[in-house]
Design a protein around this nucleic acid. Sequence first.
DNA 1: AAATCGGGGTT
DNA 2: AACCCAGATTT
Length: 402
Amino acid sequence: MNNLEQRRFFSRELLIWYMGNKRDLPWRRHRDPYFIWVSEIMLQQTRVDTVIPYFHRFIERFPTLQALAEAPEEDVLKHWEGLGYYSRARNLQQAARQVVELHGGHVPDDRNAVAALKGVGPYTTGAIMSIAFNRPEPAVDGNVMRVLSRYFLIEEDIMKGSTRAGMEELVRDLIPEGRASDFNQALMELGALVCTPKSPHCLTCPVMEHCAGRLAGREETLPVKTKAKKPRLEQRSVALIEGQGAHVGRILVRQRPATGLLARMWELPHITSSLSGMEGPVPDGPAMDRLTGALMEEGIPVSPVGFLREAEHTFSHIHWNLRVFRCLEGKSAAEAPKHMAAESRAEYRAEAASAAEAVSGAAIRWIDRHDMETLAFPKVFLDILRDYFDSKEAVLIESQLN
DNA sequence: AAATCGGGGTT
DNA sequence: AACCCAGATTT
């Protein structure tokens, strides 16, 4: 069997296998390029099972490209909450607005026009062009590189751009005439269901017979890929600030900057707490003092109560170890001058409390459980806030029973 | 080319 | 704990 025959066999058998084995996925039930596009953005670095519920909710809330373009950004972020890589959501909406402005609200059937959209790179360009418009463009993702590296015994490092470029040319050659949509999805489907990263299911593979990697006994060692670096550790002190006076029952949250990590997401205030030249966790006392000091500089006077809980959060490149400290809004009565009368101490507290709003401006809010439904939080803060409000509710119910 | 950007499932 | 997922953008 020569190389041409090996390629023809692959394309033919893979397509036949796909037509009999493809999964029934929400975005495969329509040919609306907008649905295909949304699904492809959500699926970047994200598994199918994770995406499905998000896809349903997103399409229900933003049924058309126009609806997405016109929506408040907060609303879009909220529907992305928990899915990660939030720039995807903001880029998707920007791109929807691009399409309204430049293409009359219709996803263009044009490679270069699609590639020019925010958040649409080489893979997604090919995916939209082939799946939505059946154009013979490669859509090379991690699945495809794994499948091709094994079947064709390609030993180049798939982390290199040149390797992906080579695979794109290979795919162009493999796409059967008029079948780009099914063929590209077939490649990814095989990678997801059969040609898996570990212990691939070669015995049920439709192209095992001529898989060069398998024939060489290399299916477990391909693809070749440089190892990812371990995420660096960061210790952080987090303030869970309970409102006083007008803010009773509420917690202070702040919005992150428009760029960088978790851009424009809401969070509990926190600071880096690792001290230079010190290994291991910082003791509660010093950590809490630094936290209240930092908050005071932001115009948010608080009085610390004590350690509440720990939380972990892992990003691609950072691992957060969070230590949450319970605080009360405003300077405590204990910190008010001792000689003050009771009324004066109350006034002192109220003054300190209002300072928080005056200085910090629009980037902070006092929220209750209900407000969590409109602001988008990273998973770790979502968990902390939910646990807190749950426990408060439990205490309240218990006290009512007694 | 390398770093930055989440979160979760599998092994 | 390591790996990796229907990657794109910035440096």
